[in-house]
């Protein structure tokens, strides 16, 4: 039960939503799937006198066009999972959506864009969006703008969103790539402790690019170019050396009540390796 009285707004136009957010400032919050916001308000951790609900903005869609997919801000994990449009590197989002903790109830409610805006270090989406090369389309008082995911996540629970700005869609390139996604968690109900999202692009001559994006191991995703650690066929050359290389790229590991920073750094290598392993079957999606 939310302890404070609030006004629930459900604008039908984006400009109205932005205007409401601008008018009420920090007193307002954007309501997407609500899986984070509402429990936090029930617990009294967050108080907002105004909630701007995106449900009437017609933002439930996954559309593909010109080599990009665009995912509306109110699109749930379940809808992402069911979408046939997310191919190539964008299939990473489907892989992550399939393993969202909380089961069907949460997958039918939580959204990709909401998770991005929340920017919880210990979650799937920030790392996946960065790995997929996603671009977040934002809308604010100054109109629309686009921010690449790699620049969007600024730190723990911190994004490039300016006051009164909101995520409208998430655009993901449909690049042909081998993908891998591995998530380490302590038990079924645990937040992710470390994730690795991998894209490997290959041409007739072999691997042309390979990147691992670590999620949950630091305040923001860490992308590592690993092409030189792979053979032309995409197999890892030296596992021990690779682990050390990955670990060396984690400067300030994330620490929370489930796992200390030292553990996150420790497992970063193997998590990356396991995601990479999934790409070795040679299948490009």
């Amino acid at each position: 039960m939310i302890r404070s009285t609030l006004t629930h707004h459900a604008p039908e136009r984006l400009a109205d939503a932005t205007a409401l957010l601008a008018e009420h400032g920090a007193a307002a919050a954007v309501l997407g799937g609500g899986t984070v916001l509402l429990p936090a308000m029930v617990r009294g951790e967050r108080t907002h006198r105004h909630v701007v609900d995106l449900r009437r903005l017609e933002l439930v869609f996954v559309q593909a066009e010109a080599g990009w997919a665009e995912i509306g801000a109110m699109t749930t994990y379940a809808q992402v999972l069911a979408s046939g449009e997310l191919t190539g590197s964008a299939a990473l989002l489907r892989r992550a959506a399939a393993g969202i903790t909380g089961g069907a109830q949460l997958r039918n409610q939580g959204t990709v864009a909401g998770s991005a805006a929340y920017a919880n270090p210990a979650s799937d989406m920030p790392g996946c969006l960065v790995a997929a090369g996603a671009v977040l389309r934002l809308h604010g008082p100054d109109g629309p703008r686009e921010v690449p995911a790699a620049e969007f996540f600024r730190g723990a629970f911190t994004t490039a969103l300016r006051p009164a700005e909101m995520v409208v869609t998430v655009r993901v390139p449909l690049r042909p790539a081998r993908i891998g996604y591995y998530k380490l968690k302590l038990s079924e109900s645990s937040w992710p402790i470390a994730t690795a999202a991998v894209t490997v692009e290959v041409s007739a001559d072999g691997v042309t690019s390979a990147a691992v994006t670590l999620g949950a191991v630091a305040a923001q995703p860490i992308t590592i170019d690993v092409a030189e650690h792979l053979s032309a066929q995409g197999a890892l050359r030296d596992e021990v050396g690779f682990d050390e290389f990955v670990r060396s790229r984690v400067d300030e590991p994330w620490d929370d009540e489930l796992a200390p920073a030292s553990y996150r750094r420790e497992v970063a290598g193997v998590v990356a390796r396991r995601a990479l392993k999934q790409t070795e079957d040679g299948e490009q999606r």
């Binding site: 429990p39 617990r43 302590l186 038990s187 079924e188 109900s189 645990s190 937040w191 929370d256 009540e257 489930l258």
Partner: peptide, 28 residues
């Protein structure tokens, strides 16, 4: 294996929800 109520140096409980206090679920 999982359940714990850890305390911070500030003397406050760090696990306050079932996302922080890990109960076994059926697949576990």
């Amino acid at each position: 294996l999982w359940e714990e109520l850890p305390y911070g140096a500030d003397g406050r409980l760090r696990a306050r929800t079932f996302k922080q206090y890990l109960m076994p679920r059926a697949p576990d």
